[in-house]
Write a protein that binds this DNA or RNA. Structure first.
Length: 527
RNA sequence: GCCGACGUAGCUCAGCUGGUAGAGCACUUCACUCGUAAUGAAGGGGUCCCCGGUUCGAGUCCGGGCGUCGGCUCCA
């Protein structure tokens, strides 16, 4: 609802508290809101008289008649519907203050936005706040600390330090990437981290993104760390001549990328300044575009299915600052739509959200608080190859310009791990669990046996450790549970290889033989 | 970058109106040799984010910076 409030200066938490008290008081006293429609001119005149330039602007930008709502003497714009009476409101909480640019434009003034929520039942408010608290326990930044996966340092903001346990996850993903790339006809390449600014001018990134690049001056020459792999790949392509027989040429590289993101947007692993994408660029003929797009989407969904992820699909169309002609964009957008249709994917279209060199299919997932993050992307680019003068010799003995598909499927590995931690709440499947099995000797007497059991597991390729600390069994069970270890094997007087005491994450217990345990682990560890 | 909040031990946090720092967990040592989510005792550990100012004296007050969190904008 709208509320007329003189904001105390300075705007801050104290103001928020005062506002909340005021709102509570008014609601308790009871307020009514009444709707009435007026013509645009009438609305305009009213807000002009009130010296409300923002409201005048809103009136001017709306089509047709205007609906207003009235509370006592206070009248404001509202498209409606609007609550008519405050009586049913039983719980109100103002959550936070934030600056928000007027009409979402950073070049315009910033107004103070108040976030709040209201419920018909105080219990619902409590439940809502509880849900937010719960979500915080799934926060990947929390889990990264608790599970000893990664951390950050003030000395290099936005650049993760991966701990040994985090690297286990990383390497599993990296192995998967290598294996599937090999299967799907990609060639692995490796390109430099630093390039002279000349390269970025050629690609067009310099003009748009130079403030966001890490620049290095060496002996009077201006270098920049690569913020993406594509120009390097184009450069690589251009270094030797190509025949149509080589196409499609699929170049893959999990290169280290640096982007100097604005300090205010950094967010754990989900938005970082140093990251690695499971990146690849496919150079192909026009005729090959469709099949290559399909192969990319197929590959992407193969990965998402492995991890049981539901992606939101967005088709991002030509932006204002696009390179190339409308005809090229018509063609590229149509190709992406056709691929999505063939693949049978539901998607929403986003005008103006495409990259400057081409439209893209973006694959999004939500974090624990419902915020949406882009993971995968498949982009069709007809511009970079031209800018880099890339060619291939056709069967007609004439030089042609190839098309280029940019694709990252998990997206950045950092972001993928972050989102996946939130998705699973840290209960990683066996394949990704840094420590898969923990063996607990009941007492010191059984330590040697426990160690040899863990050894056997390691020989079979599992990540198994023994917790030999002189702590009670209960204590070590608890620690294993908190560390979210998928399998705990207790070894003592009563156990033998025929009868192992196996506890699964969550508390379920069973007695199983060695062979059975091994085959269960092997089945679960397959990716 | 912008708006708001926050920054104290490895972690989570307490520290009232300025008098030079504390808890729980973790860690170390000792005792216990243990049966499915916390055994007990003792001990070590701090540039109170950084720089400057006010003051006899600053974790505490003021200014600037850095970082983090929630939004906004951005995301090649």
């Amino acid at each position: 609802f709208y509320y007329d409030f003189e904001f105390p200066e300075p705007v801050g938490e104290e103001a928020l508290e005062r506002l909340e008290a005021e709102v509570r008081r008014e609601i308790e006293e009871g307020r009514q809101w009444e709707r009435f429609d007026v013509s645009r001119d009438e609305a305009r005149e009213r807000f002009l008289a009130e010296e409300e330039p923002y409201k005048v602007e809103l009136v001017d930008s709306v089509e047709g008649d205007i609906s207003l709502y009235k509370q006592g003497d206070f009248v404001d714009l509202c498209r409606g519907p609007h609550l008519q009476d405050s009586k049913p409101l039983k719980a109100v909480k103002l959550l936070s203050l934030a600056g928000a640019y007027w009409r979402g434009d950073e070049n315009r003034p910033q107004l103070t936005r108040v976030y709040g929520t209201a419920f018909y039942d105080p219990k619902d408010l409590e439940a809502y706040l509880h849900r937010i608290e719960e979500a915080k326990r799934r926060d990947h930044r929390r889990l990264g600390k608790d599970l000893d996966l990664f951390e950050f340092s003030e000395v290099t903001p936005g650049m993760p330090f991966w701990h040994p346990r985090g690297m286990v996850i990383w390497n599993v993903l990296e192995d998967l990437r290598r294996r599937e790339n090999a299967k799907r006809g990609y060639s692995e390449v490796r390109t430099p981290l630093l390039y002279e600014s000349e390269l970025w001018r050629t690609s067009g990134h310099w003009e748009k993104y130079q403030e966001h690049m890490f620049r290095v001056e060496v002996e009077g020459r201006d270098f920049a760390l690569k913020p993406m792999n594509c120009p390097g790949h184009c450069l690589l392509y251009s270094l030797s001549p190509h025949s149509y027989r080589e196409l499609p040429l699929r170049l893959a590289e999990a290169g280290n990328l640096h982007r100097n993101e604005l300090s205010g947007v950094l967010h754990g692993l989900l938005r970082v300044r140093h990251f690695v994408q499971d990146d690849a660029h496919v150079y192909c003929t026009t005729e090959q575009i469709h099949d290559e797009l399909l192969a990319c989407l197929d590959y992407a969904y193969y990965l998402y299915d492995l991890f049981e992820l539901d992606m939101r699909v967005e088709l991002s169309l030509r932006p204002d600052n696009k390179l190339g002609t409308d005809e090229e964009w018509d063609f590229a957008e149509a190709e992406l739509r056709r691929a999505l249709a063939t693949q049978g994917l539901e998607y929403v279209e986003s005008e103006g959200e495409g990259s400057f060199y081409g439209p893209k299919i973006d694959l999004h997932m939500a974090d624990s608080l419902g915020r949406s993050w882009q993971l995968g992307t498949v982009q069709l680019d007809l511009q970079m190859p031209k800018r880099f003068g890339l060619t291939y010799q056709g069967d007609d003995n004439v030089e042609h310009t190839p098309a280029m598909i940019h694709r990252a499927l998990l997206g950045s590995l950092e972001r993928f791990v972050g989102i996946y931690l939130e998705h699973t709440g840290g209960d990683l499947p066996l394949v990704l669990a840094p420590e898969q099995v923990r063996v607990l000797p009941v007492s010191e007497r059984f330590a040697a046996d426990a160690e040899s059991l863990a050894d056997d597991l390691r020989v079979h390729g599992f990540r198994a450790l023994v917790d030999e600390r002189e702590e009670t069994l209960g204590r070590r069970i608890r620690d294993a549970e908190l560390a979210k270890i998928p399998f705990v094997v207790v070894w003592g007087e009563r156990e033998s290889l025929e009868a192992l005491a196996v506890r699964r994450r969550g508390g379920e217990q069973a007695t199983v033989g060695w062979e059975a345990l091994l085959s269960e682990l092997q089945a679960a560890a397959k990716l």
